[in-house]
Design a protein around this nucleic acid. Structure first.
Lengths: 225, 225, 225, 225
DNA sequence: GATGAATGAGAGTTCATTCAT
DNA sequence: GATGAATGAACTCTCATTCAT
């Protein structure tokens, strides 16, 4: 897990600040490792089998711990699922929304720059699989879906809603279509996730290319002319 | 469905015997009704709870039959699920693909005419919910997903692939984009299903409007100018 | 179980009246037998081990059924316990309270006649063990204790409270002690149950003799003089 | 309890070493305090929940120690229960049996003086609750019941058996009833404990008054005349 | 001595599936 | 064909107990 170094740092910092109170007893480091391996194992298990078919025993086995150990960190199977998925979700977007459009940068260029990079990451990392998981288990975990919407879906949509009028004023848009239907811009991304993750895993489509085509379609970009 | 002929035969036989001896022996008519009510009940159950949380007992209760009765018609719970969903899937498209573009009808007009109507039906009937179910249970039922792809997804896509060059030749398309990315046209539909069924049930978007906007976007329709 | 014949009778009557609605399917007789054997087994198990140490698996084994079968009749282990004990409790007294004092019969003679017989039955049958069970598990099952109090404890006490003034008027009592302390008369019975069931099983005391002594003690019977 | 001397010794050693080196090393004083708080916590836990529902973790939390600490003092949960209850039992009677009947004091007066005071203490302190606990867990802990019988039940009974003939000779008893049924005298006490602790906690009866009434009933006390 | 993370046997409970009636 | 009682594998969750630190 690429995050481990960062986590270890945090853990060590925590250990240092707690050193006075915890001179004896098990190592906080090992604890953090145990939890991390459980979370990792659980994510893999849930991705493989879905919530219903996943078993705690299997998670424990994948993590190399005893059957009861996951319960030290998550009270129930549902809590484990929610905890694991939530952890993957929160802050996953972070960077994109931090990005600011530079002076003289067109909205189209800005969107291409930020969203295209994110899309690459989404596919490279297992983000698309997470999205699929949230969607697939959404009926049982409405709270998770809401988090997903709040943390991932709505921010991107809001960004588009905010930028569309700007682009229109700048003459980048030939009509109000993006203003009226902001979903149109991200539709190809979901189309791609759906196709690649669920419908046709053997013939994945290039989500980035699909998105870029849609971007050029909506903006009167040069490729149009 | 291989059983269909046999069933029809039985049904006919039933109709015949009905006139002769109604009072004694099992009624084949009643049998067909029993199966129908089981299928209906099962679909409702699966839509409500998903495959894992659905129980045969509950299906039986909804259907007003005993717990063992569904097993007369479907060998296992999985077979019940597959059978029920498959039945909803197969032939659901039927009509659209039958439709032929009329002489002088533009491809855009043809697509609007056929797909828009279908979309309306999809939303009016529970088709979108079925789509959701297939997607959600796809990991466990790859065969169903394949059926879905074969019966629903690919036909529409193939239709687009077939018509795109035609439209291009007819001067309806300003570029090759639809030829290279046929998914772009149906992306808004999936965006809508995803949003309305799973992500934001409280704020459904108008799928038909979204699709029409995309249609006009890709074709150099009047609304564009 | 001595009750089986009576129960079978009831069961048969039930089967007869249901015959119209239940022409097919499992035999109601066998069902009743299964439930009876589960109840019997559960009572034995609870008496042997107490609620906490009793296991459903063991109950099932004693009853000669599968582990899941008890759940067809009792939703939870608690329900099984409550159901079994309650069944033993309700109506166990019945007869005593029906008894009426005959003309010219002294209160003392009446109490001796009715309670002494009941005491014999209590010991002969497993009633004392049931009482112990209720008492022992009372903290966890307040509802059961309340039933016990309502069905067994209070009725006897109320009977005494009702008869004490009568006896006093009849000159059978030398003072108001029984009126002020009705518990005194039944105290020896509980003393006996406690001793014989819990404290000193190897040296049981004769509860009937103890009760009779107390009866004579409180009434100025001949034995006193 | 065999450990008592050792403990006292340790305690003394602790007192000694306290003056010399308080700052370093484990404090034996603290150890004794730790054990005491564990015992206290355990008793409360067992009284609250009974043996089966009590958890070591909860005991530790009540005592303000770690989950593993109780195991330093008691090898198993059963040992903890036995140790705690036993400690409450042993020597609890002590004083009563030490008491000697004064010259010219009637047996009745002596019994009233000694037992009545004890009864008050029983109710004031949690002794009755302990009795309840022993009774309730008796099936699982026959050894405890035996201790109870040996330390509490039999001594009182033996005292009565010893004094009854004396009272009879002194003309305090109108007949041999108490000699033949010594249990009769203490029956009201148990009746009271049973009623107040288990059967009808909302309507406690006055155990002391009940006992005194029985005492006067058996002895030809003034109240009788 | 003390800690508390980790263990794993074991219990309650569910439910797809079977089959005698 | 239909019934529903019975089965038993499988799963979640608990908690007494151990032991490295």
């Amino acid at each position: 897990m690429p995050k481990t170094p960062a986590k270890m740092l945090t853990s060590n910092a925590a250990a240092r600040s707690k050193r006075v109170a915890r001179a004896r007893g098990p190592s906080p480091d090992k604890t953090a490792q145990t939890k991390a391996s459980i979370v990792r194992a659980a994510l893999a298990e849930f991705l493989d089998k879905g919530f219903a078919d996943a078993t705690i025993a299997s998670v424990a086995q994948r993590a190399g711990v005893a059957k009861g150990t996951p319960y030290r960190y998550f009270a129930t199977k549902e809590a484990l699922f929610a905890g694991v998925v939530q952890q993957e979700l929160v802050g996953a977007l972070g960077d994109i929304l931090e990005e600011r459009r530079e002076r003289d940068e067109s909205v189209q260029a800005f969107l291409r720059r930020t969203l295209l990079i994110t899309l690459g990451e989404i596919e490279r990392k297992g983000r698309a699989a997470i999205a699929r998981l949230v969607i697939v288990e959404g009926v049982r975990f409405p709270a998770l879906v809401e988090i997903y919407r709040r943390e991932m879906f709505d921010p991107v949509l809001d960004q588009i809603k905010r930028l569309a009028p700007v682009a229109r004023r700048r003459g980048e848009l030939p009509d109000d279509r993006l203003i009226r239907h902001p979903h149109l811009l991200i539709a190809p991304v979901w189309m791609g996730i759906l196709n690649n993750q669920l419908i046709d895993r053997d013939h994945p489509i290039d989500i980035a290319a699909l998105f870029e085509a849609q971007l050029e379609l909506m903006f009167s970009g040069e490729a149009r002319r």
